[in-house]
Design a protein around this nucleic acid. Sequence first.
DNA 1: CTGAAAGCGCTTACAG
DNA 2: CTGAAAGCGCTTACAG
Lengths: 351, 351
Amino acid sequence: MRDTVSTMKRRQRTGKGAPGIVEVAARAQVSPATVSRFFNNPKVVRPDTRKRIQAAATEMGYIRDRMAGAMHNRFSGSIGLVVPTIDNTIFSEMIAAFSNRLLEHDRTMLVASHNYDPTLEVSIIRSLLERRIDGVALVGQDHMDTAVDMLRIRSVPVIALWGYDENPRIPFVGANNALAGYRVTRHVIDDGHTNIAFLFPDTHNNDRARDRKNGALKALTDANIVSDKSKLLTCPYDVTESKAIAKRILTSDKPSAIVCGNDVIAHGVIYAAYELGIHIPGALSVAGIGDFKGSADIVPSLTTVRLPAKRIGSIAADTLVHMSESGEHDTVKNQVIETELIVRQSTGKLA
Amino acid sequence: MRDTVSTMKRRQRTGKGAPGIVEVAARAQVSPATVSRFFNNPKVVRPDTRKRIQAAATEMGYIRDRMAGAMHNRFSGSIGLVVPTIDNTIFSEMIAAFSNRLLEHDRTMLVASHNYDPTLEVSIIRSLLERRIDGVALVGQDHMDTAVDMLRIRSVPVIALWGYDENPRIPFVGANNALAGYRVTRHVIDDGHTNIAFLFPDTHNNDRARDRKNGALKALTDANIVSDKSKLLTCPYDVTESKAIAKRILTSDKPSAIVCGNDVIAHGVIYAAYELGIHIPGALSVAGIGDFKGSADIVPSLTTVRLPAKRIGSIAADTLVHMSESGEHDTVKNQVIETELIVRQSTGKLA
DNA sequence: CTGAAAGCGCTTACAG
DNA sequence: CTGAAAGCGCTTACAG
């Protein structure tokens, strides 16, 4: 005594109160095909037919099912963004810009973080692929081959953020991190410092950090300063940790300047100096990389290299949308974002 | 001389190198139905058949198409998170926790921000609905009726974050913001302060801020302190702005304490005091709400109310997944997250 | 400009 | 435990 399948299904959907294209078509007295056309390419529908469909759709509260549509035209309308971490200022500004720009293109964003674990990154990409994403932005060029291959095989547009590479495997929107590292360090050297400590994150699976560090060390070499291994410290992107590490070196090694892998680390160093009563920049110069929100406001304001996260995010979104619409995946040019040294109050000449 | 449609389609897919369930089935010498079962409910497939399918799928690099699957079982495997802003610490920690927890449940996260614009929020929700999300988390209880209705009609599980309400329209995972506001203010009053300034964000479309502010003012009333309108200032969640506003009031009104709507605002106030050479807490007490990452590290460390963003994010993710799996949308209990006053160095007794 | 029909890649009763 | 077949809600040549 059960309902037939088709009756059950219809009842279920009706029960859910969500009308489909068929119901809208019935109400507007047209075929489902015409309703579909109305939503995808209104121009091909006659104005008064258009009006009827619009009215029916609005009255019934119709919402398109893009998943059903995606089965034909292969476009889900979602674009993926895979980052190491979401809640770190480094990336959250970029994520926000990326998301906002996608919204303007009528796309939604799928984000996930892998916490610098390349294997996790692979499963995230797989999971995004299962959802038929129209494109993906990854951070940097350090990825497992599997990851890149899965995307290439499916011709999903990919773009690498932040990183810079002469000969990249993935087209990028990024800045020359080596140059950024070189510039801040050079600035500190120009101020007369030779006893410089470096706080950089683990460069494993992180080409941005690697480039910055190499750039920094090159500035040292170019200035004929012998770099002391003990002054080259590993420090995560975390204020608490950088503060602790800075307190340790400031009470032992006593460098006259500290160059940090990014602004978050530099903030921690500034706090450490406060607590120890070390005057900045009188007794210690501190420099970061990134120019995050807040770096101009901290006291003393932070000398850093501007690396516009928001621009990277917006440009990446535009580029991916364009790639997916045009199908031109291979002709995409790398987009180099210029960096700029910003000298503020946290660095100064050595007395 | 053109190919038939079916040939073209097949070629196109093959050209893209992405095998479907049919190709996997052929290779494993089973029917597509069995391959489908293997992925959805492996147990019903005989072990050796299972092995053959697994092998075929791996060799061919098969990736499921969840969109196609979602047409039947109505589950896309994606859950939405709609926040006012993404790059503000208030939310980015929560987003990260939400995302990480969803990943454990094999779900992906769609995020978007509406920047406190309820109309934009409606279009975001519509856009999420078009992607057949399995659930949505919104922030607070201030939403347009359209938004709530669209979700209810489609029986999509919804949860409100952060907010607290005796009688909420949407079940929530949140904290008692009024109590949080009351507590910090009370603490400052207990320290002997009566000349207190308040820096709170615009409470329009922001029930969390509204509750906190009301709680703060209630503490004032309870202590028989007359609140002076001129000391109740509106300030966005932005260090630069709060620093500027704080500098202004610290050079004119000269309150002995400033209570802030959240920790970001408080950070700006601390920087303002630095620049003006005002000692904290000797000459000025500063308190925040939230206990963000970094609030324990800033010097002086910030007195605040702990409002665990990460826990809210994780619990919300768990709850939404559970709701969508169980179909129990209406029996969900509100989950109150306890708050805790954390007294640090930025507040002190009035001399 | 519009409709009928086939099809997108899966899932799921139904029948072995 | 497995297969054949119908169907999910749309889109798109094809034919008017």
